[in-house]
């Protein structure tokens, strides 16, 4: 099976004062479909730049990036936008929900840009919310939901276009430990169902739920290790029952 993510010499420089800062330098990497990868490192290590490049939100200074076999740098902007919408789901630390829209409308939003009819959007959004366990709260606005529930809405939104890759930026950063654990359990369940996950975190406990960890320092990847993940569901039962 071919790689989902494939980078060669992926490099991102930022101009800074007199010179340039190498936020990411010469990254060669392959991530297969269905992997659960954690990217770790202190702030400024390049892990966020890595995530932005993988998410097609940023363009590399040098090097190649293929997502599902497509060379992203060669694509026109509209095609990149479509790629973001259909191949990638984003989950943010601060959820980034539209405060005035209910859960259903928030989840529907990515489908607006694919021009899907309203009926199908509603249907799929409802299914995605069921999948993250919020079937009963579809018409709640974010302010009526807890942090964990809001993050579930955000995950439903990320999943709704059926992407092969979920990008999560400190997904548990704003949550208490139990809720964080629940979110990680959800990620593991989604991963078992075939969704590849790339999760940026500075928390080794979070990285332990992945099956592979990439460590970054000063713009370079210094470690790439594979291991048996901790079962979040089991830990949840053990800790809170």
């Amino acid at each position: 099976m071919s790689a989902l993510i494939e980078t060669q010499d992926l490099t991102r420089h930022y101009p800074s004062g007199e010179g340039v800062v190498a936020a990411l330098e010469g990254l060669d990497l392959e991530i297969g479909p269905g992997e659960f990868v954690a990217a770790m490192g202190p702030s400024g290590s390049g892990k966020s730049t890595f995530l932005n490049l993988i998410g097609c939100l940023d363009q590399p200074t040098r090097g190649r990036y293929r997502l599902a076999g497509e060379d992203v740098a060669a694509l026109p902007p509209d095609r990149v936008a479509a790629l973001r919408g259909e191949q990638i789901g984003f989950v943010f630390q601060s959820f980034n929900l539209l405060p005035r829209s209910d859960a259903l409308a928030n989840v529907e939003m990515p489908m607006l840009y694919r021009g899907l009819p309203r009926r199908i959007r509603r249907e799929r959004a409802a299914i995605a919310l069921e999948r993250v366990g919020l079937g009963q709260r579809m018409h709640h606005t974010p302010s009526q939901l807890s942090g964990g529930q809001q993050q579930r809405v955000a995950i439903a939104r990320a999943l709704v276009n059926g992407p092969g890759l979920l990008l999560a930026d400190e997904p548990t950063g704003a949550l208490d430990s139990r809720t964080g654990l629940e979110i990680m359990a959800l990620f593991q369940a989604l991963n078992r169902a075939g969704v590849a996950i790339l999760c940026v975190t500075h928390d080794a406990d979070v990285a332990a739920f992945a099956s592979r960890t990439l460590r970054f320092r000063d713009g370079k990847m210094i470690e790439d290790s594979r291991y048996q993940p901790v079962d979040a569901e089991a830990m949840l039962r053990q800790k809170f029952q």
């Binding site: 509209d78 936008a81 984003f90 939003m109 694919r114």
Partner: peptide, 16 residues
């Protein structure tokens, strides 16, 4: 601004 960033991230084109 954040809403715009979000919309761009979930697949909105600039003309949208």
């Amino acid at each position: 601004t954040r809403e715009i960033g979000l919309r761009l991230a979930v697949g909105a084109r600039r003309r949208d």
